[in-house]
Design a binder for these strands. Sequence first.
DNA 1: TCGTTTAGTAAACACCCGTTCAATGACGGA
DNA 2: TCCGTCATTGAACGGGTGTTTACTAAACGA
Lengths: 189, 189
Amino acid sequence: MTEAGARLTRAERRRRTEARILEEAARLFAASGYADTTIRAVAAAAGVNPGLVMHYFGSKEELFLRVARARPSGPLAGGPDEVVEEMLDRLAASMADEPVESLAVLRSMLTHPGAAEAAAEGAARYRAQLAEAIPAADAGVRASVISAVLIGVVLGRHLLKLEELRDAPPEQIAALLRPCLRSLTGADG
Amino acid sequence: MTEAGARLTRAERRRRTEARILEEAARLFAASGYADTTIRAVAAAAGVNPGLVMHYFGSKEELFLRVARARPSGPLAGGPDEVVEEMLDRLAASMADEPVESLAVLRSMLTHPGAAEAAAEGAARYRAQLAEAIPAADAGVRASVISAVLIGVVLGRHLLKLEELRDAPPEQIAALLRPCLRSLTGADG
DNA sequence: TCGTTTAGTAAACACCCGTTCAATGACGGA
DNA sequence: TCCGTCATTGAACGGGTGTTTACTAAACGA
C-alpha cells in the first residue's frame, strides 16, 4: 500500500482514501446499524486514523448522510402494469447482490432518527410517483402499503435473514409477489 | 409513593417494582431500540435507582430478553381462508393501539444481534404453522414472504411512520392486503 | 424485642464513545 | 533548493455507558 500509494498525486491519494472510508462506512452501517458502527471501526477498516474520518466528514452524522445520499434509483412511470414489472425487476436486482447503501439506510432508519429524515424525502418522492400510476381514489394508501411490502421483503431477506426467503431465487419471490402488487396497484382490474 | 408503598408486604412491593421496570423497559425499547435505551433511563422512568435494575435483572441483555419473552400470540390453524382472516384480524388489532412488546422486539431485532436470535424461534414456529395451512409445494417460501409482508406493514406504520399508512384506518389496510395474502396462501385457487 | 433478611440507594469504577488539536512528514509550486 | 501546503497521525479530553460495591432502612421471623 505504501509503495503503490507513494506514486500517486496528493489529490488522487486523498480521493481514494475518502472513497475507501465511505465504502467501509456503508458496509458497517449496513451490517451493524448507526449506533453500533463506531468511527474507530470505520477508520480501522479503511486502514486510517479515526481523526482523519472526523477531518474529512466533520462528524459521524455527516459521514452517515454522505453514505445515505448515494441513492440513484431512476424515475418510476407508466401504467400500473409497467410499474409493477419495473418494481419487480428492481427488487430482483437488489436481491441478487447485497445492496449495501440501501441496507445501511434501511437498518439505520430504524435506529437513528436523523437517518429516517434523510431517507424520507427520497422515499416520499418514490411513493408519489407510484401513487400517480395507481388509478384509484386511495392511491396514496396503496402506494404506502406497496412500499411497506417491498421494504418488508428486502428486510426479511437481507436483515432478518428468514431462511427460506434468503435461499429462494429472486425470480421465485418476484413471481409470488406479482399478483400481490398487481392487486395493490389495481393492475388486475 | 412512600405512604402507599409502606403498607404493602415486602414481596408484593418487589413484584410491583419489578413489573414497573419491565413495563417502562418495554416502552423504551420500542420507542428507541436496544442501543439507545439506557438502563439509567429505564430506572428513571420506573422511579428507581439504576443499580436496582441491575440487581433484579442481572444485565441489560437479560432485561431485554425478559421483555422480549412476553409474547403470547396463540396458534394459527385452519385452511388458507381462515388463516388469512385470522392474520388480518391480528394485524388490525395490532394497528389499533401501539403494540409495545412487539415493537420492542421488532425494532431491537434490527439493532441488536441477540434480539434477532431471541425472536427467531417464535417466528420460525409461526411460519411453520402458516406453511402447514398453505397447499403448495413452495409453502415454506410463501410463508416467509407473508411474514415479511406483515412485518413490513407494521414497521411502515409504527416505526417508519409512513404518512398515509399511519393515518389510514386498520380496516382499509386489511382490505387492501386481503387479496395479497389470499394469493400468497393460495386461497384464491 | 432483637437479629436477620432484603428492597432500595449512593457513589464510584472501568470502559468506550465522538471529538479535538498539536505535531509530522511527504508533496508540489516557486 | 526551499518553503508552505496538506494528508495523515498520535494522544488526549469530556462525557455517557453498563456494572459493581458498600451502605441504609424497613419488613420479617422468632
